[in-house]
Amino acid sequence: MQTVLLAAGEGTRMRPLTAGLPKPMLPVADRPLCAHTADAAIEAGTDELILVVGYEADVVREYFGEEYRGVPVKYATQDEQLGTAHAVRTAHEHLDGRFAVLYGDDLYDQASIEALFAAGPGITAYRAENPSNYGVLDTDGDRVVGVTEKPASPETNLVSAGACVLPSEAREWLDVEQSERGEYELTDVLDRVFAEYEVSYTELDRWMGVGRPWELLEANEWKLTELDREVRGDVSDDADLRGPVVVEEGAAIEPGVVIEGPVLVRSGAHVGPNAYVRGATLLGEDSEVGHAVEIKNSVIMRETNVPHLSYVGDSLLGRDVNFGAGTTVANLRHDDEPVEQTVKGERVSTGRRKYGVVVGDGAKTGIETSLSPGVVLSPGARTEPNEWVSRDR
């Protein structure tokens, strides 16, 4: 079994976090997003990983190398993102048997991927609350006979989750025609597989696509809860670590700190004194959480500083961000409605009652800055001391 892992996209809906980092390499707990999928494939028994790369490809290559967890790794480059069939087609020269296709920006439960790999030609399925937003599976008993894209009145809530195992012959079926969207779609390849093979479906117990910043928060909420307590860093006797807290070697926790898991403190991070970290929180490598800071349910990426007397809740801070003393993030609307965020120029509901801010790499706030819920700061953005920021910058 070979596994083609699609990791070429930039992730424009995830901006500004992807300004210098491909979406599949954004941090989810203790590893990049796409590494969770690669690990699932390895645990399911894949013999080889073929990573399709494009945007910021060197970041992916540096992480996975030529061998990852004992499994050989090859690379195929997709210079233009022209669709899923186009992406898989770039790996054509490496394919020589049946192969799986997994998405580097999706998370799957491990047991279901193992079942998919064991079943032969097959596709993953999921019970969706709003099936008309997806491709709905057409089935004949346990067999999949087609996929209907976004039907107005779906007869079932069983939708395609994308991941699939294809027969070796599908290697020669990847040269499909452009769709109405101007892309080369893997669903057109699947149509031929459905016609010539008995294709089963594997229903996923848990699955999520990670396309927007609040979904990256949700992904971390999922994966951080799977970590077991482990303390290898330098932790003061006067610190209070409660529940599933991981402190990696090289991290330091000062006196008076309270951490309520699930929390991951990565190597080189420094917390305290007297800081309070709670909820599903990731503190990235070499990050700084200073005196009397509270961090709640947030992703703080590497080399980012929240030095002292600040509050950050339900937020995502990119790399090398610096919050001035007393910076406060508001994460709740007064009308109690879901917080909205601008995505590709449009205001979109996050569906989250509590949601803070998204901050791009290298942004800095002045002391006593206040940030409204849903605000986005672009890479390198600046705020003035005592400023209230209610619009994206």
Score class of each variant (00 low, 15 high):
Met25Tyr: 05
Ala363Cys: 10
Ala7Trp: 00
Arg347Leu: 14
Val199Ala: 08
Arg266Lys: 15
Met1Pro: 13
Pro255Asn: 08
Ser378Leu: 10
Val28Tyr: 04
Arg13Trp: 09
His308Gly: 09
Thr3Val: 13
Tyr276Trp: 11
Gly250Trp: 10
Glu346Tyr: 02
Glu114Pro: 01
Ala87Pro: 00
His270Glu: 15
Val257Ser: 05
Val271Lys: 07
Thr365Leu: 06
Asn297Ala: 13
Val53Arg: 00
Gln2Met: 14
Tyr201Thr: 00
Glu218Asp: 14
Glu218Val: 08
Tyr55Lys: 03
Met208Ala: 13
Arg171Tyr: 12
Gly326Lys: 10
Ala29Ile: 09
Glu66Tyr: 00
Tyr75Met: 03
Leu21Glu: 06
Gly356Gln: 03
Arg212Tyr: 04
Leu107Cys: 11
Met301Phe: 01
Arg206Lys: 13
Arg333Thr: 13
Phe117Glu: 09
Leu204Met: 15
Thr304Met: 10
Thr304Glu: 09
Met25Leu: 14
Tyr197Leu: 05
Asp30Trp: 14
Leu264Ile: 12
Asp138Thr: 12
Ile42Ala: 04
Val359Met: 13
Tyr197Asn: 11
Thr18Tyr: 05
His308Leu: 05
Val28Arg: 07
Asn130Gly: 00
Met1Leu: 08
Asp191Gly: 00
Ala170Lys: 02
Glu114Arg: 15
Asp188Arg: 15
Glu387Asn: 04
Glu260Ile: 14
Glu180Trp: 03
Ile50Asn: 01
Gly256Lys: 01
Val165His: 09
Thr148His: 02
Gly141Asn: 10
Thr37Cys: 03
Pro24Lys: 08
Lys150Ala: 15
Met1Tyr: 06
Val299His: 03
Leu264Lys: 06
Asp335Pro: 02
Tyr311Ser: 09
Ser200Ile: 02
Asp314Ser: 12
Gly182Phe: 08
Gln2His: 06
Asp175Tyr: 03
Thr342His: 11
Gly211Val: 00
Val199Lys: 04
Pro167Asn: 09
Glu67Trp: 01
Val247Thr: 07
Ser236Phe: 06
Leu116Gly: 02
Arg143His: 13
Leu51Cys: 09
Ser287Gly: 11
Glu93Ile: 00
Lys223Asp: 00
Ala269Lys: 05
Ala152Ser: 15
Val376Trp: 01
Asn297Trp: 03
Ile113Ala: 07
Leu166Asp: 02
Glu185Cys: 07
His36Phe: 08
Val289Phe: 06
Val271Cys: 09
Ala76Val: 05
Asp240Ala: 07
Tyr276Arg: 14
Lys344Trp: 03
Glu183Trp: 08
Ser372Val: 00
Asn157Met: 02
Thr369Met: 07
Ala91Met: 07
